[in-house]
Amino acid sequence: MSVTSVEQAPAYADPHHLHAAEHPGPAPKRIVTGYGFWIFLLSDIVMFSCFFASFAVLSRATAGGPGGAELFDVRNVAIETALLLLSSFTCGMASIAADRHNALWFQVAMAVTGLLGAGFLLLEIREFVDLVGRGDGPSRSAFLSAFFTLVGCHGLHVASGILWLLTMMAQVVAKGFRADIERRILCFALFWHALDIIWVAVFSVVYLLGSAT
């Protein structure tokens, strides 16, 4: 395989590497980076909680327009949920392949993850276009403004996640499993799994509770 030489690359091939093992200095770079990204993700979740709060407050402010029960297609949401959940699983497979320095399986798992994410995004865009086409766009009511902000913000996260995924695939091709590339893969996996956690809240609160009332 073409990555054999990269597999043997020593730790100092990473220009930012700190050898923490010899003295009780700072924690290893992988933990510092991962922890920093974890803090970012939590702040992202706090931001989403603000959108959830505004959606919950405004969920009945339909201004005489249609509510969730008339607008949402639960079957479409179920397919979206399945796609994102499966992509979270294949993303986990990609992390295992990255830990094992198996480039082929890493690329396969990442490609499947990206395709599932793109399918999710496509269904969501189709739903948005359909809603706007029927005159139920974000300017229709406070409820729909909150809906488009919350769900659209999650969709934007998925879109940027797919871009990041593609750059990670390219970086592994170009540079192999260097320590700094592995840290980026760790951060990407965290990001992708966090997106799925936020989607669990979205489909429960927005779609299932929204169409129940």
Partner: peptide
């Protein structure tokens, strides 16, 4: 090896 030395795990690390 760093895990063995430091006994901490990065978030998301299996």
């Amino acid at each position: 090896q760093e895990f063995d030395d430091r006994g901490d795990l990065a978030p998301g690390e299996q």
